[in-house]
Design a protein around this nucleic acid. Structure first.
Ligand code: MN
Ligand code: MN
Ligand code: ZN
Ligand code: ZN
Lengths: 149, 149
DNA sequence: AGAATTATTGCAACAAGTTGCAATTAATAA
DNA sequence: TTATTAATTGCAACTTGTTGCAATAATTCT
């Protein structure tokens, strides 16, 4: 589980499991598979989707373990959460970069936003209210250009 | 239930129930009491709190009626919803004016924000993405000035 | 390797909110 | 005033997510 002689493999970005282990948490097959599902998902992934992916290889797993692992990863800042308004909360590895989303109420389109869009708002809140806004992975709802016309 | 000769009483701001009735919805004792609880609340109010208030006078009422009435009032734009992160969604009559909130993750303080704070962001989203953001009663989480120092 | 320690898990019960459906009842017509 | 009709309600079952607790198992110690 540890790199030999301190060198890293190509494409080794220190996986979530390794980072948990380095932070003193135990390495369990459940966690390995949950983290694997998150890392191998190219889009947003929900707790149910993670569970579905894990349960095929490990039928004994319980969905509360998925939620608890997500809580842990969130607390360690290794994944970010966002509610895209579809009834299930979505997750991302933080390593995939900070960004946000616009969600169309009419056609359910999801538009990606650069983090920079909120810099102005954040500094306004800091200057006017002394408030450090914790805007990490936000979804803003409304109507997209297609649905307005 | 209807104003005589078109004149309105002093302090009559056309209550939520009247507005529902004018929109063709039926006037039921449940709705009257639910709407009453919302209008007589000086702060944010949750579905459970509305239910608690109604059930003392009308023990037969079911909480799903509260949720359905809230859905109706939301759809008609008569109340706005916001998730202040305390496990229960909060409601306001729209007539109390548009505003937003900053919520401190450390001390749970809730700071009120003028609507104008988001004008800049909204026009940016409209100009750059053609997106009409539907920001009505938003809660932004983070750390307040007291907790930062 | 085997025992001790304690983090982690599965389970079951719970909380907030939603939904299909049959019974009720407000509004309307007769 | 009574009958008609369709909106509304209560109820029960369900969904997503959370939590206390006893059993399990990863890690550490001997
Ligand atoms: Mn995202
Ligand atoms: Mn408010
Ligand atoms: Zn759209
Ligand atoms: Zn604070």
């Amino acid at each position: 589980m540890q790199d030999h002689a301190g060198h890293t493999h190509p494409h080794d970005h220190n996986g979530l499991l390794t980072q948990l282990a380095q932070a003193g948490y135990r390495m369990t097959p459940q966690r390995a598979m949950i983290v694997d599902a998150i890392e191998n998902s190219h889009n947003h992934i929900s707790a149910e989707e993670i569970y579905s992916s894990v349960v095929t290889r490990y039928p004994h797993v319980n969905i509360s373990t998925v939620y608890r692992t997500l809580d842990l990863l969130k607390a360690k800042g290794l994944v970010t959460e966002t509610d895209l308004g579809n009834g299930r909360v979505s997750y991302h590895p933080t390593s995939k970069g900070h960004h946000h989303h616009l969600v169309c109420h009419e056609c359910q389109a999801i538009i990606d936003l650069e983090e920079s869009v909120f810099i102005e708002l954040k500094s306004k809140l800091k200057n006017q209210y002394g408030f450090m806004a914790d805007i990490e992975h936000l979804a803003i709802f409304g109507h997209c250009s297609k649905c307005i016309s």
